[in-house]
């Protein structure tokens, strides 16, 4: 609790880091901040081409089906891969001055989160413009699931960022892990395509419930099932606690390892 209050006291530092990251991310590029929106749209284009034109899967309005899951996935994937080097990248500061080290992964994940929120503006626009429509009651659950995903991503970023300090290879290993994870999560396909005998293992994936909740709200336009939501909340909070504990243990050696 003391730790939590201290991190809260450093909110201005988090704030500053997030703003710097958002401002600096596309610095020097011609389109600048517009890439925040263009990037997911282009990814959407590629996936839609592949899965509804070439490998036809028969899912109705596949672009919506995919888009509402892809945007949250991009946030999650960025948090665990990019987040892993957040401490390493600020090594100089970590070696020289004190501040709660948690600030670094928090700032990274928060900045990726802000990006996702902005991307969701595009998602909602697409839903309205194409006439797909939005269920506004279900939409009330969107912030909840976003928050849950944030906690989950933060918990995992705590672990990856702390471990990467000790084992630099993790940065690269995580790229592959993130790709495999994407295919094991119902981002490009629906959960009911998974063979029944795999379900017990498959259900362990914490991102499964999260992505399903997003899809319930925006694609099926219904209030997510309470069980899905509850599992997601528990997993999010659980991962955050574990991540925070692991990070706290490992951060003591940061200054010497860097």
């Amino acid at each position: 609790m003391k730790r939590f209050r201290e991190i809260y006291n450093y909110r201005e530092m988090i704030n500053g880091l997030v703003r710097k990251d958002l401002r600096g991310r596309y610095k020097g590029s011609v389109l600048g901040f517009a890439w925040t929106f263009i990037n997911p749209l282009l990814q959407l284009l590629v996936y839609t081409m592949v899965f509804s034109v070439i490998m036809r899967n028969g899912i109705q309005d596949y672009y919506v089906f995919l888009f509402v899951a892809l945007v949250p996935w991009i946030f999650f994937s960025a948090s665990i891969t990019g987040g892993s080097s957040s401490v390493l990248a600020s090594g100089d500061m970590v070696k020289k001055i004190y501040f709660p080290r948690e600030v670094l992964p928090i700032a990274y994940v928060t900045s990726a989160f802000v990006n996702m929120v902005l991307s969701f503006v595009v998602v909602l626009l697409v839903l309205l413009v194409t006439g797909y429509g939005i269920n506004f009651v279900a939409l009330l659950y969107l912030p909840i699931i976003m928050l849950v995903e944030y906690l989950l991503a933060l918990g995992i970023a705590f672990i990856t960022s702390a471990c990467t300090v000790y084992l630099r290879d993790l940065e690269y290993i995580l790229g592959i892990i993130a790709m495999a994870w994407q295919f094991l999560t119902p981002v490009m396909y629906a959960s009911d395509m998974v063979p029944d005998r795999l379900l017990p293992i498959w259900n362990l994936n914490p991102m499964k419930s999260v992505i399903e909740a997003y899809r319930d709200i925006l694609y099926y336009q219904q209030v997510p099932q309470l069980s899905t939501l509850l599992v997601a909340v528990l997993l999010g909070v659980g991962f955050l606690i574990v991540g925070a504990i692991v990070f706290d243990k490992l951060q003591k050696g940061f200054a010497e390892e860097l």
């Binding site: 201290e6 006291n9 450093y10 909110r11 201005e12 530092m13 704030n15 500053g16 710097k20 100089d92 500061m93 020289k96 001055i97 004190y98 501040f99």
Partner: peptide
């Protein structure tokens, strides 16, 4: 701590902006 003065300074930012980032590193709010 006045151990490593100016750690976290950004050369391209102005003195005023650096005051904000640097003070934030000491845990000060806006």
């Amino acid at each position: 701590s006045l151990i490593e003065l100016g750690a976290g300074f950004h050369k391209d930012m102005t003195g005023r902006e650096n005051i904000y980032t640097n003070a934030a590193i000491f845990g000060l709010t806006r």
